[in-house]
Nucleic acid binder design. Structure first.
Length: 499
DNA sequence: AGCACA
């Protein structure tokens, strides 16, 4: 007996609810497999286009007996199994379940996970979503929630109930919606028609740009909607209580008895930056906001074409102090980069620890350069122009990084970062220079911070100032030079802080 | 025409 004969039995010994099909036509579809196998039982999974020739497949039945009935049928049938007229050979697989590499979002179901990119909750109403998705069949339920791009891939599958506020940072805003249809076919029709398309502009507020739909399948079968609200609907249950608070809360700000907007206090400030003629980096914000206490986290993002930032303090009191002191003031003289501060609804930001647009000062920073004090959490190795360029986002193009190393370190303040105690003001070397700097004199923030009676020694803006208030490496023609204290001085000015 | 995926 040859070994090949033995091999012939290797794969046919043990019945399995998974069948192996071979000699299929090239790139046979799931539908064709299902059509062939469905008469024998319920198919729970398929995997087609297997093998180098993509002409093999697996079909998994719900029950072993169903697989046996199919194998038995074709074993004794005069008509072989066929797909597109081609004879298909069917055997028990040597495995007992199909594991396919479909990502969860590719597994069809009756609930769609829709990501609407570039918008947040207020931009696309649930009624618009309902309208768009009703074109394909009855929409049973909708649940929407904001999501952070890059924060977590996929949905929160362990969430069983919606309309509970989930403090997720929407650094890069997008809106997600779970759309529940009657069946997977309807969901698939909607997905096929809408995936990659955009919601028509006339259904959206004017300020909303293109918002593409990215659609996958949810693992949910039946959404648990607690209220009819601005973020969730159950169209199968009109008796469901209406959550007016949630509806009102999102559409308009909470208004107090005097008609003024009531804004719950928070330890996180939302800063909108008007008239942003100059770059406002994470470092600039850190400098400005550290005057009032420890800054834990910062995130910068764009919203409707305006730069905004979230600044997280450890407590509400500190945030309130900073808000009071900085509201309406400009980072740069001349009305540039005017700050408008409100309380964020976030309480704990989830941001990348060290990126172009965000910083988490509560986690250890990038590895220390040997000559630097590791306690200082050095983030700007002064000898690494590449990193500098990255950090500065290429916005200081006129600045020659080579000057960086040539710039003397004005202060050495190891330990002041990240604890932000500023207990030993690193300024004494140049107190006069700082005080006499035209920047210090003309910068509202500096005046404001001083006049606020903030008692922390060493207001960062002063710390940052250099003799002359400007880097000689910036060409005189640079607009950054004209009125911008931090921008003009900033490239080397970072150094005193962190090196 | 004879068993994938990590």
């Amino acid at each position: 007996m040859s070994t090949s004969t033995q091999h012939q039995f290797r794969y046919t010994q043990t019945p399995s609810k998974v069948l192996h099909l071979r000699n299929l036509p090239w790139e046979c579809t799931d539908d064709e497999l299902v059509e062939l196998c469905r008469p024998f039982g319920k198919i729970v999974n398929t995997k087609c286009n297997v093998g180098a020739n993509r002409n093999q497949a697996f079909v998994e039945f719900a029950d072993l007996n169903q697989a046996i009935s199919m194998v038995s049928y074709y074993a004794s049938s005069s008509e072989p199994a066929q797909v597109r007229g081609k004879t298909v050979y069917i055997q028990y697989s040597n495995r007992h379940e199909i594991v396919n590499n479909k990502s969860p979002g590719d597994v069809p179901g009756n609930v769609l996970l829709v990501t609407i990119e570039g918008v947040e909750a207020g931009d696309v109403s649930i009624d618009v979503i309902h309208l768009v998705f009703s074109a394909f069949g009855f929409v049973h339920k909708i649940a929407t929630f904001e999501k952070t791009a890059g924060f977590q891939v996929g949905e929160f599958v362990n969430r069983t109930s919606f309309d509970v506020s989930l403090p997720v940072l929407t650094l890069c805003f997008c809106l997600q919606a779970l759309i529940q249809y009657t069946d997977a076919d309807t969901a698939a029709a909607a997905r096929n028609a809408l995936d990659g398309r955009s919601i028509p502009r006339y259904l959206l507020p004017e300020h909303v740009g293109a918002c593409h739909l990215r659609i996958s399948y949810s693992a949910h079968r039946d959404l648990n909607i607690k209220f009819q609200s601005n973020r969730s609907r159950d169209y199968t249950n009109p008796m469901l209580p209406v959550n007016h608070t949630a509806i009102d809360g999102a559409l308009q700000p909470v208004v107090g008895p005097d008609g003024k907007k009531i804004e719950p206090e928070s330890n996180v400030l939302l800063a909108s930056i008007e008239n942003m003629q100059y770059a406002v980096t994470v470092d600039v914000l850190h400098t400005v906001f550290s005057a009032f206490g420890t800054v834990q986290k910062i995130a910068i993002f764009e919203k409707n074409g305006q730069t905004q930032a979230l600044i997280q303090y450890p407590d509400v009191t500190t945030a309130a102090t900073a808000k009071e002191a900085l509201e309406g003031h400009c980072i740069y003289d001349g009305g540039y980069c005017k700050l408008h501060l409100t309380y964020s609804r976030h309480t704990d930001l989830n941001v990348k620890a060290f990126s172009d647009k965000s910083r988490d000062y509560t986690v250890p920073q990038v590895p220390a350069v040997p000559w630097q004090n590791p306690q200082a959490g050095p983030m700007y190795p002064g000898t690494a122009p590449a990193l500098q360029g990255q950090v500065l986002g290429g916005q200081m193009l006129s600045w020659d990084p080579a000057q960086q190393t040539a710039t003397p370190s004005y202060v050495s303040a190891p330990g002041t970062y990240p604890s932000h105690t500023y207990a030993a003001p690193p300024t004494p070397a140049y107190p006069t220079a700082a005080a006499s700097s035209p920047i210090a004199q003309s910068n509202p923030l500096v005046h404001n911070a001083s006049s606020m009676g903030i008692t922390q020694p060493g207001i960062p803006l002063n710390v940052n100032l250099q003799p002359g208030g400007a880097s000689p490496s910036v060409p005189a023609s640079s607009p950054l030079m004209q009125a911008s204290p931090i921008a003009g001085a900033s490239p080397p000015a970072h150094q005193p802080y962190f090196s």
